[in-house]
Simulated assay, not measured.
Amino acid sequence: MTSAVVMAGCRSARRRDVALPALVRTIDDVLADWLPDQYCSGIAARLDLADGVLTWCNCGHPPPLLIRDHQVLDKAPERPEEPPMGTPRNWRTPLAGSTGRRWNRETGCCCTPTA
């Protein structure tokens, strides 16, 4: 149920074409309204295919793995983690924004699930 609510909040924000920090805040609000005792880790990302820049926000999730030529690259993109989505606002610091990184077309990305 939690992931369905998160995806509904994400789709709503994407339809309004908001920036990634605002998308995460929308998910926070939706979780607070519908499932106030639940939270969800995840990575919100946007890849601009024209210039190859990946922007992303990490919300309590392990960093993504970058894969090129069937090998995991040594350095995953890193940024400070934000609290999981759905964390009460008084526990949350303002979102630092998204991190941009030039993306090579031969590189894949895998966001590992948490157990």
Rank of each mutant, 00 (worst) to 15 (best):
G9A: 03
A50Q: 14
W56R: 01
T114A: 12
L23G: 05
C40E: 02
L23P: 02
A19L: 10
V30S: 01
M1L: 14
G9R: 03
P77R: 04
L31Y: 01
C40Y: 03
P94W: 04
C40H: 08
I27H: 00
G100N: 05
R11G: 12
A22M: 11
P64A: 06
R46Q: 14
C110N: 15
P36A: 06
I43N: 04
C59Q: 03
P62K: 01
L95C: 08
W56L: 07
G86D: 00
A19E: 10
A44N: 03
E81R: 15
C110A: 14
A96I: 07
G60D: 02
A44K: 04
C59P: 01
P62D: 02
R79M: 15
L23N: 07
E81N: 15
D29R: 09
L31P: 00
P64V: 03
R25A: 10
S12E: 13
D17K: 13
A96M: 13
S41M: 03
N90H: 11
V72I: 12
G42H: 02
A8S: 08
R79A: 15
N90T: 11
A22H: 12
G52F: 07
E82T: 08
G42W: 00
H61W: 03
R15M: 03
D37I: 05
W56V: 00
G42V: 02
L47N: 06
I67Y: 10
A96Q: 14
A8T: 06
L20C: 10
L73P: 05
L47I: 06
G42K: 01
R89M: 07
T87W: 04
C111K: 01
D28G: 04
A22Q: 14
S3E: 07
V18R: 06
R11Q: 14
A76D: 11
K75V: 08
C40S: 15
C10R: 13
W91E: 13
W103C: 05
G86S: 02
L49P: 10
P80W: 09
S98L: 08
D33I: 14
R102L: 14
L65D: 08
R105S: 12
P21D: 00
S3Y: 04
H61S: 03
V72C: 09
L49S: 09
W103A: 07
Q38S: 11
R15D: 07
L65S: 12
T93R: 15
A4P: 05
N90I: 07
L31I: 00
R89E: 13
Q71T: 13
L65A: 09
P77E: 00
L31A: 01
C109D: 05
D29N: 11
L20I: 10
M1T: 15
R102D: 12
D29E: 11
P83G: 11
E78G: 11
C111T: 09
T87C: 07
A8I: 12
P21K: 02
Q71K: 11
M85H: 00
A32D: 04
A50W: 10
